[in-house]
Computed example of a mutant assay.
Amino acid sequence: MKQEEYHMPSRRSFLTGSVATSVALSMQSTTATLAQPKRVIVDSQVHLWPASTPERPWLPGAKPQLPEPFTIERIIPLMDEAGVDRVVIVPPASVEGERVDYAQEAVKRYAGRFAIMARVALNKPDGAARLATWRDQPGVLGVRLNFGPDEAAWLTDGTADWFWPAAEKAHLPVMLLTSGQTSLFARIAERHPALTLILDHMGVGAGLRPRRDSSVSMRNDMVAEAIAQTAALAKYPNVSVKLSSVPLISTESYPFRDAIPHIHRLFDVYGPERCYWGTDLTNSFARATYRQRVTQFTEELPFLTESDKDWIMGRAILARLRWT
């Protein structure tokens, strides 16, 4: 039997094969990179309002969060610079009342970039009929309720009782802002398991945010108690939370490290699919740039995986609000 001959590969054939392999691996890597979809970044809360004019005046006694109107023309370049794709507009009740026409202008001018959580008057039970067609309004995805000092009693005196079953029946997501009353939503979440409840600003309402003249221990206690109430509601699948307004909760400068344990605690109990990044930009405008508010979550929270960030930075709020 003739012995099979063995030929040593030439330098040319070796280099040719190496180059071909390198090119193939490079193409595979490029293909894999191209296959990864861009992370969609959605701010779960921004207030927009135009200037007060005789034709369209602000509410009497209005006190906007900034001295100048925060308009569509101001937010768009900020979004583009920060890499924010979409924004949920929450019309400021103290300025706009129940009006949504300016927010709808943003929806019309920049298709796909804006949606609206509109306000409903809880002390007007005849609004129940409106909720059935609430999402038929251009850009409106749900309701935002603010239980401030004037409305706090509505949670316990029966004024708001009509709203919860009506919103549940209409499949309307509801965003909520309270001060020290978060625990009251346990009963509502349990009685209405199909009602989507979203707690704003980690459950730390304006009345609980630490003042600069407060002692460090007092500030920490106020925030910790609010966070504890919010964490306790995580056992209800229909409750979720906006990890928003971080600069106002923190007493430090960017990256607001004293707020990170609170973010971590809520992330641990709610998980990435029930946590939403947001800014409430105008309420702490001077404390951080829009880009820094993004990078705090994408670069400063080592306990988040890239998949977690995909959910928290946009995917989760789009799913919860059914924003396509």
Score class of each variant (00 low, 15 high):
142 G>A: 04
249 I>P: 11
270 Y>A: 01
153 A>F: 10
245 S>N: 15
132 A>D: 02
284 S>K: 11
233 L>S: 05
142 G>Y: 07
82 A>T: 04
91 P>I: 01
194 A>W: 11
85 D>T: 06
33 T>M: 14
113 R>V: 00
162 W>M: 00
319 A>S: 12
133 T>W: 09
215 S>F: 06
170 A>F: 01
197 L>M: 08
24 A>C: 10
56 R>F: 10
157 D>E: 06
255 P>M: 05
258 D>H: 11
282 T>C: 09
49 W>I: 00
127 G>Y: 00
68 E>A: 09
256 F>T: 07
248 L>P: 12
204 V>M: 06
253 S>Y: 10
175 M>W: 08
233 L>Y: 03
64 P>I: 00
240 S>H: 12
179 S>I: 03
10 S>Y: 07
24 A>Y: 09
235 K>A: 04
270 Y>D: 02
32 A>I: 08
240 S>I: 02
125 P>K: 02
248 L>N: 15
295 T>P: 15
186 A>D: 11
192 H>W: 03
237 P>E: 02
224 A>R: 15
170 A>V: 02
139 G>W: 09
118 A>M: 03
140 V>H: 13
26 S>L: 14
267 F>N: 11
110 Y>K: 10
323 W>A: 01
21 T>S: 13
169 K>R: 14
58 W>R: 05
50 P>A: 11
28 Q>K: 11
45 Q>T: 09
159 T>G: 06
54 P>C: 01
12 R>P: 05
99 R>M: 01
224 A>T: 15
314 G>E: 02
61 G>M: 02
276 Y>Q: 07
276 Y>R: 10
167 A>S: 08
69 P>W: 01
180 G>C: 03
86 R>F: 00
131 L>P: 03
261 P>L: 04
211 R>W: 13
165 P>Q: 04
70 F>H: 07
65 Q>R: 12
235 K>W: 04
278 G>E: 02
282 T>D: 08
171 H>C: 03
13 S>R: 13
230 T>R: 09
49 W>M: 02
48 L>N: 09
118 A>S: 14
116 I>H: 06
306 E>N: 14
173 P>W: 01
294 V>R: 13
43 D>M: 03
5 E>Q: 15
300 E>D: 11
110 Y>N: 10
99 R>H: 13
292 Q>D: 04
182 T>A: 08
302 P>S: 06
161 D>W: 01
125 P>H: 01
185 F>Y: 15
228 A>Q: 14
235 K>T: 09
317 I>K: 09
301 L>R: 11
229 Q>K: 12
305 T>A: 01
100 V>C: 08
80 D>T: 08
147 F>D: 00
275 C>G: 10
